[in-house]
Amino acid sequence: MKNKLAATISFIVLGILTILGPTVIFPVCKEVMACTYTKKAEIGLGILLILIGVVAFFFEEKVRLGLYISVVGIGALIAAAPLGWIGVCGNDMMRCRMATRPFLVVLGIIIIVVDVILIVLATRKKVESDN
């Protein structure tokens, strides 16, 4: 129960941060440029992460483990969007490149690390219960 709640809260908080990153904390450029599309993708990924967090709370161990595994991919996409996948503006002096990009990359890495810890905990628990 403890781990389940911790996972749901973590995913919701990290999902909200993914949405707020390119929109409120370090907003991307106002003109329509590569960073605009990155922002759109991040909002989508953030919503997905929140949904997974909520859904995982109501399902059994096996389903939850599957959902946790899918979050590794979401974390990777969150980090990849401002890099090679979609990108941000080319100018080194622009906020989207100086702040939004590192923020999203670091956030993606944190999501993956948190998720791997949750997977390990869930797997260990499953092995214990199987025994």
Binding site: F26, M93, A99, F103, V105, V106, I109, I110
Partner: peptide, 13 residues
């Protein structure tokens, strides 16, 4: 590596 290296430039900016 997670905080200062990526955001140091933005802070000085």
């Amino acid at each position: 590596f997670l905080i200062v290296f990526p955001f140091g430039r933005y802070l000085t900016y």
